[in-house]
Design a binder for these strands. Structure first.
Lengths: 147, 147
DNA sequence: CGCGATTCATTCGGGTGTGAAAGAGATCGG
DNA sequence: CCGATCTCTTTCACACCCGAATGAATCGCG
């Protein structure tokens, strides 16, 4: 069973397909149990664990471009999950922080995702999961061709 | 080195981040060298290797919902890459096939992606790459919780 | 001090994805 | 044969992402 199905021999396409499936499942659980989207939950976690941050910093960690962060945070602000205020020490930037509702949502989302992640780890097995973590981290932190 | 950075401990978030980075890079190369997007190239490959197919079949292989396929194929038809015609044996469905331009684009895209994929394989190393392929295939073909 | 370069965020236009609902054609059971 | 039902695709409203261009504030260097 060396051969994999046609399309799957392109790692990047395979990752996209896997990401799509996982995202769909995670998103539906997160919406149902925490009333947030998968993208939003990533921001919530970041703020929950590392506190108030600038927009650019969020984009850096999550590998998102500036326009994506602007839109995401704006929708979250409308939803009452975060507040945005001008950085008084550098008025170009804006700082984002959790609201109380945001904190509660973050904690619910964390529960949901913890469970989901555990299922995935089970599915892969301990050793494979560790290798995949490491491999994806490497790809995620260093995807540029001419390093 | 057991501990990974905060956000990364959620496999699904990590996959999203990696997918985003890889997609961005692949997309930019594909646009430059073959004048197609990454999503479009997945459809092109499928048609190139397996021939004319129905919309639903494309969605099944690529893990895309029906509305996504409709939009994707429509934009590709506008771009002259594919043609869509009614399935005469079942007039509910539509068949999609490559145009000549589509075939040429598919072959260029194949070259680009072959190179990109080789780089990724290099970056991961042979054994890790094989494990990642296998693991993602498992996740991509079986992401449902209650199996 | 002051002006050009840099940095942070937003806006703009467009591709990509989703779930829900609608329309059209096939199918099957009475 | 024909209506209930199922299947395939589309439409709709929306979330999400990107690159390019813009606006606003800071920085840096003469």
């Amino acid at each position: 069973m060396a051969r994999v199905r046609a399309v799957d021999r392109r790692l990047f396409l395979l990752i996209e397909i896997a990401a799509r499936r996982l995202s769909r499942e995670a998103d539906s659980r997160l919406r149902a149990e925490a009333n947030v989207t998968a993208s939003q939950s990533a921001v919530l976690f970041l703020l929950l664990r590392r506190g108030e941050r600038r927009l650019g910093s969020i984009g850096e960690v999550l590998a998102l471009g500036a326009p994506a962060v602007t839109g995401l945070v704006n929708r979250m602000e409308t939803a009452g999950l975060v507040i945005k205020r001008k950085d008084s020490s550098d008025k170009r930037g804006a700082l984002v922080d959790l609201t109380e509702a945001g904190r509660r949502a973050a904690e619910r989302a964390d529960q949901v995702l913890r469970g989901f992640n555990a299922e995935l780890d089970d599915k892969l097995g301990e050793t494979d999961a560790a290798i995949v973590y490491e491999a994806l981290t490497r790809l995620a932190t260093d995807a540029d061709p001419v390093t």
